[in-house]
Amino acid sequence: MTNLDPATLFFAAIFTNNILLTNFLGLCPYLSISRNPVSGFGLGTAVVFVMTCTTAINHLVFYRILVPFGLEHFQYIIFIVIIAAFVQLVEMVVERYFPALYYILGIFLPLITVNCAILGASLFMVIREYNFIQSVVFGAGSGIGWLMAITAVGAIREKIEKSGTLPRGLEGPGITLLITGILSLAFIVFSGMIDIQ
């Protein structure tokens, strides 16, 4: 699908192929940080930023270094190392030069290293043979889609918790998974509109 135009791909990554609700990637931070929309939004913003940048860097590393040397099967470990290093650097820079942002995003940044949606975006980029622009757009779109999903679920969970009508056995991950299921059913309505596979 290399001829897909970036605007469509961007839209598709957010809605029709939401990385969380249709691919179920990045579920562990999603389950633990979605207790309210504010912290969900904080983590989501960090994901958008890191995902956009790492898909771009990983695209360059994959096509400029790994492909010429014929080392494509090293992509997993290389991508993970790059994501981890990038997150470290970003954390350092944000802490030093953007203290206000650090207090919002700071504690979420280390969490992102282990967010599999980030690695997932890089791997999809390779499988689907996106070019550089498409990769960046896809990374940004996937990030925004993830952000939307976690914020929405955060809001729903907070509302349910405040209503106080939840049976004890369903509290926490139980109800979150149920909400996720229903939300992803809703998102399936969009699927088929655009095919990016």
Binding site: V61, I65, F69, L71, H73, F74, I77, I78, V81, I82
Partner: peptide, 10 residues
């Protein structure tokens, strides 16, 4: 080459 490259990159 793979291991060397990975080592270098890391």
């Amino acid at each position: 080459t793979g291991i060397l490259l990975l080592g270098l990159l890391t």
